[in-house]
């Protein structure tokens, strides 16, 4: 509850211009409907995440919005532009990072940036951009000699070289180690701080939860939920859980009697206590101590976006 004030709502979303408006978008490949009547708006200046398992239709949706795929029906507007009809105007004003794209292996980092900068009506000085992206010492390096994380940062630099109003990231952190992933998150948050709208897709629920102001959850081409991560998790009305291990038999009567405890489950040596309230954890731990229970590996679990996905679709993300 105490964290509510951190979420600063846009003063009046209805008055803010929408960066993306997507209405009843449909894209079919033969018999497969990859995107099925998907509608949502992205507010200017927010980090919007399209999340879901691989194959949910995220990439097809983002590519329809970027103008690289033509929808079968529905309408898409990006900053008021039609991505099909106004494609070159849109390309002037958007930055794109693809899930799979490349540069010639022998091109140098500085050549790639000055080349792409020359394609745009307006572009920023790319040298500070390389410094920010920790690529300054790689300026003259051929692309083929860079690590996966470094290459990814070059592609981010290319996506920012035209000072875009909106930036699209498709599976930005796939294939990166946890440390590089975290530095990418800082980068994305920083891009938003500079007043740009960020539209990203990810199949990492943790990434969406940490990074996005609002997330749209997709499954089998359909949108199944759309809200802030906090609101989605709160909508589960699931309290916190305490999980611990015991040796041998365990009588859960004392726990069940505690105020705030809503359920106790035992599977083998594992005990899961569900409940709510500020003193939930300390009262469970106190009860175990005073009862002389030999417990180990005690930890708390809070519901997250993975649980939201499980409740909404009846299956786990990583299946």
């Amino acid at each position: 509850m105490g964290y509510g004030s951190i979420m600063t709502e846009v003063a009046n979303p209805e008055l803010e211009p929408h960066a993306v408006q997507c209405e009843r978008l449909v894209k079919r490949y033969g018999a497969l409907t990859a995107v099925d009547e998907v509608s949502f708006d992205v507010r200017a200046g927010e980090i919007f995440g399209l999340v879901g398992p691989n194959g949910a239709g995220k990439t097809t949706t983002i590519e329809c919005i970027e103008g690289f795929r033509k929808p079968d029906s529905g309408s898409v507007r990006v900053m008021g532009l039609d991505p099909q009809h106004d494609r070159y105007e849109l390309r002037e004003r958007m930055g794109v990072q693809f899930q799979s794209a490349a540069l010639p292996p022998r091109i140098r980092v500085e050549e790639a940036l000055s080349l792409f900068a020359s394609f745009y009506r307006t572009s920023v000085d790319w040298r500070p951009l390389l410094v920010q992206l920790a690529l300054a010492d790689k300026q003259r390096a051929p692309l083929a000699t860079l690590s996966g994380g470094q290459k990814q940062r070059v592609f981010i630099a290319l996506a920012l070289v035209n000072d875009p109003d909106i930036v699209f990231f498709d599976e930005l952190t796939s294939g990166l180690d946890p440390q590089s992933r975290r530095s990418m998150w800082e980068l994305v948050a920083d891009i938003r701080e500079r007043g740009k709208t960020v539209f990203l897709t990810t199949h990492f629920m943790e990434e969406a939860e940490r990074l996005c102001d609002r997330v749209a959850i997709m499954d089998h081409g359909r949108l199944v939920a759309l809200d802030s991560p906090r609101a989605l998790i709160a909508s589960l009305e699931a309290g916190r859980r305490v999980v611990f291990q015991v040796d041998g038999a365990f009588d859960d009567a004392a726990l069940r009697a505690l105020p705030g405890v809503t359920a106790v489950e035992q599977t083998g040596e594992r005990v899961t206590v569900s409940g709510e309230g500020d003193r939930f954890l300390s009262s469970v731990a106190g009860s175990l101590e005073s009862g002389g229970v030999a417990f180990r590996d005690l930890r708390t679990e809070q519901p997250n976006l993975e649980d939201v996905f499980l409740v909404l679709t009846g299956k786990k993300m990583r299946e």
Partner: peptide
């Protein structure tokens, strides 16, 4: 090769004709 590896795709995302 440039088409297959996605080099042309990267060019296409810019206003380059």
């Amino acid at each position: 090769t440039r088409r297959e590896t996605g080099v042309l795709r990267r060019f296409r995302a810019s206003p380059l004709r």
